[in-house]
Design a protein around this nucleic acid. Structure first.
Length: 111
DNA sequence: TATTTGACATACC
DNA sequence: AGGTATGCCAAAT
């Protein structure tokens, strides 16, 4: 399609996140084979504004904390979206994080 | 055109 | 055990 930069790769993975599921930056980076790529994912999310549909609200940091909620235009928007998908969020943190955690690696492993 | 900054995570001290 | 420093890329100013 085009020269897939790290950003585009990240965008594609994020768009694959199932509804009601969340994942971490490191998981995506790991899936892409990026070593220190956790940052790349975060940077990519920042550029997600240039992209079309990026469910960035399903992407949180290693702590399950809604780090980027401030970038949604309205901070409440992010946790609200997560709650709408069945994910409970308290103190900007996802409850039962590992329960809702979705690892992109499960795709190729399951398939 | 160059510099600065940014949604993380890991390693080292 | 906790804090500091580093790695990486692109967009915004």
């Amino acid at each position: 399609m085009k020269n897939e930069n790290y950003f585009d790769l990240v965008f594609q993975v994020v768009r694959l996140i199932p509804e009601g599921k969340v994942t971490s930056y490191g998981a995506i980076a790991n899936y892409l084979g990026l070593k220190s790529g956790a940052r790349m994912v975060g940077y990519a999310m920042n550029a997600s504004h240039s992209q079309v549909d990026i469910p960035a609200h399903r992407v949180v940091n290693r702590n399950g904390l809604l780090t980027g909620k401030h970038h949604f235009g309205n901070p409440n928007e992010m946790e609200r979206l997560l709650k709408l998908e069945g994910i409970n969020v308290i103190e900007d943190k996802i409850t039962n994080f590992e329960n809702h955690f979705w690892d992109p690696n499960s795709l190729k492993l399951d398939e």
